[in-house]
Design a protein around this nucleic acid. Structure first.
Lengths: 228, 228
DNA sequence: GTCGCGGCTGAACGCGTGTTTAGTGTTGAA
DNA sequence: TTCAACACTAAACACGCGTTCAGCCGCGAC
């Protein structure tokens, strides 16, 4: 039942799907079927006729955007390194609606956003492993946790920035992304290069704490820290 | 017309307002007036009777939560240092709905979220200035930008984490917050203490770039780096 | 008393939603 | 030509929404 390759990317159905992606990116997933139909230049009934329901249309959009993501990644393997995937994606200006769609899905906790984050984490883990091997990046006590922290931080910061300063014309998502990176590239680089704290005390204290938590004595203590 | 102190925090109106805050936190601002009325044990008409419209109810909730924030901050000046405001807020378990409300407002780009971020930035700027003066934190080339980066990163990461792993019972927002910090505290501390990169090259290159951008020669060039 | 008044409600209104239905025009095969 | 399948639409349906309206109840003032 995979319709990914069975159907062409032209024709009315694809036009409706693209209009839906655009409208969802612009107005969120609450956008009405009627507005999507208007954008595609068809009747609302035809939208339902082709996709069955709004939810299935949403799912079709998710699938389409996801396929686009993996394709773009495949073509930009090298450039996408060091977690700059989003910036690479945003460079192709005509792809801006898809970036907006991803951000909407991130915001709504949709499946596209979820798998997008997972992809980014998996990729970043691979890239940082290479960078550590090359001596460019310091090793971590928990590589997976660090990668998750980095992805959540950068993606979350971007998301928050776009939410707080939404572009007037939603076509300009990439402009917003660029403004974000322009603003925060220096402090990020500073943090990455020089760190933030001058003393190791907090880190050492924490390491001591997790390796030998308070209340030691051999009793089976659960991991919940409510008693602390 | 300030109703903050003119009206008591008991009575039907306050009960409706609290129910609305809870409902908004649980289901987002799309929650229906009817569901709020049901939660408060009154008729939908009474909600409108007291607040005029759903938008005005939303505004009243914003005002209430905002007042609660500044009050909590006032009481926890010391503890709230080092950007741990949200954790402090989440400690009082009965206040969980309000934390959820803030997260919803952050997600929706509402006024509460916006001023909350501004407050956090202002506070963090003050705290980091003190910490720099005390020699605990390294100075930055652009303190304001660094503070914005830190707030956006940490808040965005938290937001993303909660969005991707929503608590089953929305009462457990603080549990989700705690799970988030438990997971990512080590990598954050690592990053803050030891940094990420082993070499200064990227930072130095960037600093060289911004102080002497390519295409020098005196012509008035805009700041857009599309040519790069 | 009985009046007024404010808290409060059930029922409805108008609207926008997703979806269905009945029917149009077109196109290609038999 | 005739039939069937197809893309497509106008109109309506059922429903949930925010909101309004008319009126009920209980309580303090006169």
């Amino acid at each position: 039942m995979r319709s990914a390759s069975a159907e062409p990317d032209t024709g009315t159905r694809a036009r409706i799907r693209d209009a839906a992606v655009l409208r969802f990116a612009k107005s969120g997933f609450g956008a009405s079927v009627r507005s999507i139909a208007a954008e595609a230049g068809v009747s609302p009934a035809l939208v339902i006729h082709h996709f069955g329901s709004k939810d299935e249309l949403h799912a079709a959009c998710d699938e389409h955007v996801l396929a686009w993501i993996v394709e773009t990644k495949r073509q930009n393997m090298g450039k996408a390194a060091r977690g700059q995937l989003l910036e690479v994606l945003a460079q192709a200006d005509d792809m801006a609606p898809l970036v907006g769609y991803v951000l909407r899905s991130l915001q709504a906790g949709g499946s596209v956003g979820r798998t997008f984050v997972e992809h980014m984490i998996d990729d970043a883990e691979q890239y940082t492993a290479e960078a550590v091997a090359d001596g460019i990046v310091r090793p971590s006590r928990d590589e997976r946790a660090r990668v998750r922290y980095l992805v959540y931080s950068s993606l979350g910061a971007l998301m928050l920035s776009v939410t707080m300063n939404p572009p007037e014309d939603p076509e300009d998502v990439n402009a917003a992304v660029r403004a974000f990176t322009d603003d925060l590239y220096l402090p990020m680089l500073e943090m990455f290069t020089e760190g933030f704290l001058t003393t190791r005390r907090m880190l050492d204290d924490y390491l001591l704490y997790v390796s030998d938590p308070p209340g030691t004595g051999g009793e089976a203590e659960d991991t919940d820290g409510t008693a602390a």
